[in-house]
């Protein structure tokens, strides 16, 4: 980081190469769009360069970048002014996966069903769930960041798990 502060381009490039994909995945857990994920991460790296003289990083660079990326994503989400209390989104039918009958629901297969279900959650549901699950935020923190009520977080969390449970049960029945 000291090298970057001094304007060292190659140190910057190294940092970029090291964390770019990781940070894109962080955003992708929250949103559906790969393109948007890349835009956000690139913006964060640009901000890092432009503000390099002012930035004081007290934690690990990775943690700093992670936090910046999450914050920027949340800003974008807030700008979209999603109404988290309105359930106009249709519950998308969860795509079912190919499987061989005698296989047990475990290991990789179970993970695949959950992954598919998670990725097809309604947008708001997914945002809330990934903040709590992946960003390890409390309900209160999630509510504050999204400027919604704790009640709404509770609703969305319960909904997310309900949908994923249903996906597993559906799969088991087949």
């Amino acid at each position: 980081m000291q090298q970057i502060k001094a304007g060292d381009n190659s140190a910057y490039d190294t940092l970029f190469r090291k964390y770019y994909s990781y940070l894109c995945m962080v955003v992708l857990r929250m949103t559906h769009s790969k393109e948007q994920a890349e835009d956000i991460v690139q913006e964060v790296f640009l901000d890092l360069w432009r503000k390099k003289e002012q930035i004081e990083i007290n934690s690990a660079v990775k943690a700093y970048l992670h936090r910046s990326v999450v914050n920027k994503t949340l800003n974008k989400i807030r700008d979209k002014k999603l109404d988290f209390d309105r359930d106009e989104e249709k519950l998308q039918s969860v795509p079912t996966m190919q499987h061989t009958p005698l296989q047990k629901m475990q290991g990789e297969e179970l993970q695949n069903v959950i992954k598919t279900a998670f990725e097809s959650l309604p947008e708001k549901c997914r945002i809330v769930f990934s903040m709590v699950k992946y960003e390890a935020m409390s309900y209160k923190e999630t509510a504050e960041k999204l400027e919604i009520s704790v009640k709404t977080v509770e609703n969305q969390m319960s909904k997310a798990l309900r949908i994923m449970r249903a996906a597993i049960n559906e799969y088991k029945r087949q």
Binding site: D13, Y20, S21, M25, R29, Q42, K115, K133
Partner: peptide
């Protein structure tokens, strides 16, 4: 069971063209 089996997104199944982005 669900929480323990959530995707980790550690192993990238998505390719990012890092050099282009850089």
């Amino acid at each position: 069971q669900i929480l323990n089996n959530m995707p980790t997104y550690d192993n990238m199944d998505l390719e990012f063209v890092v050099e282009e982005a850089l």
